[in-house]
């Protein structure tokens, strides 16, 4: 019979993790943490593009997708920030320096950081969604002169749930970066904004005719954010979202992450809104 042609990856098993060691693990908020990894094989390369994710495996417990949240230009630090909510993330949150993890990746599409050069940038994010967007912000700030106005709009549940607090304060001090943070609920001691992230959009300083928007947060939040951006006049071809779906393989084999014709693992997680707009507004896809 006709022989199947060999692809270059033939010899590699894409389901086999590489071994990484926890260099450091620290709490960000009550239920989130960041883990810094280094490869056992020192020559292993973990270059990634902003928006991509890895599959992290905890021995005997399981494997889950987690977005990479560090600086893509810094090849000495591989960072993942996540919430300890499931069996795997809870087990991961208890790891100590020197403990081993399995890692496959990086997988998926990335934020259009290069393509957005010359434009205003609006990053809208909610909750843990700041983690997958942070690499994009690092990349943009590294070449700040290539962009117009840069705005980060971030919504958290309460002031205690705000991620990367120190860094946000540092970013806020940048004269060429607008950082607006809001929380859903707060007591008197909070001096900042209260209200959902979408309410920040209407007064954020960017040119809707020119801006490229990147959104990452819960799907409902992204839907409403999208509507608000469209209302301000941002064209849907310049809006990008990052989707979350169940994933077992990250390479398009397990079928779990399908979103209409898209496989979120390989066609996403970052999508141009145009491509997924209709399905985002359809129930239970």
């Amino acid at each position: 019979m006709a022989r199947l042609t060999n692809s270059p990856r033939f010899a590699l098993d894409p389901m086999l993790p590489q071994r990484f060691v926890v260099e450091r693990l620290w709490r960000e908020t009550a239920d989130t943490f960041t883990v810094k990894l280094e490869p056992v094989d020192k020559t292993a390369d973990f270059a990634f593009a902003p928006g991509q994710f890895n599959m992290l495996y905890v021995f005997g417990v399981g494997e889950i997708p987690i977005s990479i949240s560090g600086d893509p230009a810094d090849n000495t630090a591989l960072l993942h920030t996540t919430r300890a909510v499931g069996t795997v993330t809870k087990a991961m949150s208890r790891l100590k320096p020197g403990d081993m993890l399995g890692l496959r990746g990086p997988f998926g599409s990335n934020w259009p950081v290069l393509e957005a050069g010359g434009h205003d940038i609006v990053l809208v994010t909610g909750g843990i969604g700041l983690a997958p967007l942070r690499p994009a912000l690092y990349a943009i700030l590294a070449q700040r002169e290539k962009y117009g106005k840069v705005v980060l709009l971030y919504g958290a549940r309460t002031p205690e749930d705000i991620l990367y607090k120190k860094e946000l304060a540092r970013w806020r001090a940048h004269f060429d970066l607008e950082v607006h943070v809001t929380v859903d609920r707060a007591t008197e001691s909070w001096r900042g904004n209260v209200g959902v992230a979408t309410t920040l959009i209407r007064r954020a300083p960017f040119d809707p005719q020119d801006a490229v928007a990147m959104i990452c947060g819960p799907e409902v939040m992204m839907r409403f954010t999208t509507q608000e951006l469209l209302r301000r006049g941002v064209d849907s071809s310049r809006i990008f979202v990052s989707l979350e779906r169940n994933m077992k393989c990250a390479i398009g084999f397990c079928g779990h992450c399908q979103f209409g014709p898209q496989f979120v693992c390989k066609d996403g997680p970052v999508f141009a809104l145009k491509r997924v707009e209709k399905l985002l507004n359809t129930w239970e896809v």
Binding site: L4, R9, A11, P14, G252
Partner: peptide, 21 residues
């Protein structure tokens, strides 16, 4: 599905390649 994309499933490949139909 298993051999046509950027990743291939080595288990499927081995079984498929060896098969006489």
């Amino acid at each position: 599905v298993f051999l046509g994309g950027s990743y291939t499933d080595p288990h499927y490949r081995a079984r498929r390649q060896g098969a006489f139909i």
